[in-house]
Nucleic acid binder design. Structure first.
Lengths: 356, 356
DNA sequence: TTGTACGCGTTATCAT
DNA sequence: ATGATAACGCGTACAA
């Protein structure tokens, strides 16, 4: 009796999960009676309900998610595909997604594309075969470069909801969540100028990443708006993962500027360090503002004024948009319309800029 | 004809995923014939196989993961539960897990416990109901404090493989992966002493986190081993998330020391900054070594000598152990035995320590 | 060579 | 009040 529940093993007792069928057999009723009894259906006698529920509690019955998914054609899982998890911004977005999703009873399956097109495609296909109800993703660098979005198109054509964030494309019709990069860069630059700086340099990345170019736009527009010339010589383009300082050192020696806008924290911190090493005071001689308000900004010396991107909020919004689509998908009532949400960033003022 | 494949929608054509049943109906054969044909079974005539395979390719047939999971009782998903994703160390471990798992054809479902016992329990239960084949996790702070591990016990009793990493407990019999915290602290301290320092302070956290206390052990043992006294006055215990510097400032004023071992990057960077602000030179007057070799260590001024914990390796090892168990679980052959793996850390030497 | 029947665990509909 | 049956999508042992 009950030997489905306890089965002896070499050194360990295994209490396998029990199913409706087990309960039914043990209590000598039908599976459907058990199912209804557990749902407190009033088709079932009080007596039977109590018996069944007691037994279920005793053996800690929990319905099998997979079976339910198969039946409902909904998994309550959402797939997240990001280029890199060891990256503060993506991590915070992920956290926002995870929190919101969890509140709504969804689990999150993450895949990392590692900035590779192929991995992105493989991961998407893997998850699209029934494992998830919808996708949230930021495109890999390679995907952006190749401009090939067939994998996204396939997924949306299958009716699987998709939300793109941060690294998006116009080629695909879907919900999107964006940072107001241009506006943020504009504001930061204007902030530097209004505090009395007249020669604002820009430290940005080589190659045209979507993000950097928007920030550059904002920088340029701010200069113009404030009646200053755009000095091309004050724009320094650095390799993404550069190690030696020679480039920037030369820049400091040869150019005259009194403020720098940097498209990320790292450039800013390295810039400040170099400047200080060369005898400049920060912010008196040169002010700095960076993007991505992470640990580096907070603990640099001096601490770095930085554009906070509210990744967590972004993730929550993305998850909200996705889950809305997923659940209305089920109603099939009204036709789709896609939104693009902009998450405002804000400037966190610290020591690397003087008060206006 | 074929109207299961294209169904008109308001403004969008939806190509729903097709199933074996669809193919069978369309080609007027049975489902099992289709199934076998797709597997290239030699029970099926070349002719039929080609017809079926062509059709499947055309309509991009992919088997439904959920159905397969239900059938096989294996999901090819692994559940990861960590206290916090916005934390460099956990993030790197996660990356290691994700990479290895992906190589082996597994997906990763992450849940964040947020250092909360309840969330940890809820997430585990959620995933344990069939969604995953095994768990990899680091215990939440609250769980460690409460010393309540029934949720882990339940899971292992159900025969679900579990691997604990970093934040583990002796109460549960399972595979474990650990950092050699004590040894690392020992080595770091010894390294400071051998470079000529005689009064090594320790900046650690208040309250007894497993991790910090092991590091403290190593620190103490190293002093003893090198024939130096343990000066209790040189051990500074700071709140986990402290903001004002008053505590440490007083410490710098009142104590005499020429080196500091810090249990994390942040304490080290803040310590260095304070020291420099008070006129000390780093490393000449005071050397610093931190734990967790992240961005802060690399970009601090001076850059910080730091204990690298190789989280990625740790994650890969954990995933390897888990998947091994998951797959042998299936054989049911030999009995379980659990291992504990130690991942060696290493010291990354930078500017905050002088050469021995 | 092809098809039937069953099972995975659940729920919903329709008998009894 | 209870149970039988079908269905979700797949694979496979067994029949035909």
């Amino acid at each position: 009796m009950l030997n489905f529940i306890r089965r002896d093993r070499p050194r360990q007792v295994v209490k396998k999960k029990i199913t409706l069928k087990h309960i039914a057999r043990e209590l000598d009723v039908s599976i459907s009676t058990v199912s209804k009894a557990l749902k407190n259906s009033d088709e079932i006698s009080q007596d039977t309900k109590e018996k069944v529920q007691a037994f279920a509690r005793l053996y800690n019955y929990k319905p099998n998610n997979i079976a339910i998914s198969l039946k409902n054609k909904r998994t309550k899982n959402i797939g997240v595909i990001i280029p890199d998890i060891v990256h503060h911004f993506f991590t915070t977005v992920f956290r926002g997604i995870e929190q919101y999703a969890n509140e709504k009873g969804y689990n999150v399956i993450v895949c990392v594309s590692d900035e590779s097109f192929d991995k992105e495609v493989i991961n998407m296909e893997m998850l699209a075969n029934g494992s998830i109800d919808g996708f949230i993703m930021a495109l890999s660098a390679e995907t952006q470069k190749r401009n090939d979005f067939n994998h996204l198109r396939e997924v949306t054509e299958q009716g699987i909801p998709l939300v793109l964030f941060d690294r998006v494309t116009d080629e695909i019709d879907c919900d999107k969540v964006l940072i107001d990069d241009e506006q943020a860069a504009f504001d930061a630059t204007a902030r530097l100028i209004r505090s009395g700086k007249r020669h604002v340099a820009l430290f940005t990345t080589e190659g045209y990443l979507n993000v950097s170019s928007k920030r550059e736009q904002g920088y340029r527009k701010a200069l113009v708006a404030e009646g200053l010339p755009v000095e091309e010589a004050l724009i320094l383009r650095l390799p993404y993962q550069f190690e030696e300082e020679s480039l920037s050192e030369a820049f400091f020696r040869e150019r005259r500027f009194d403020a720098v806008l940097c498209v990320n924290e790292i450039f800013a911190v390295r810039g400040m360090r170099l400047a200080q090493g060369m005898g400049y005071r920060v912010p008196e001689d040169i002010s700095f503002i960076g993007f991505t308000d992470g640990l580096l900004s907070r603990y640099a010396s001096p601490s770095l004024t930085s554009v906070a991107q509210h990744g967590e909020r972004m993730g929550a919004v993305a998850a909200e948009m996705l889950i809305e689509k997923v659940e209305q998908e089920y109603d099939e009532t009204d036709r789709k319309s896609y939104r693009t949400e902009i998450i405002p960033s804000s400037l966190v003022e610290r020591e690397s800029t003087a008060l206006g």
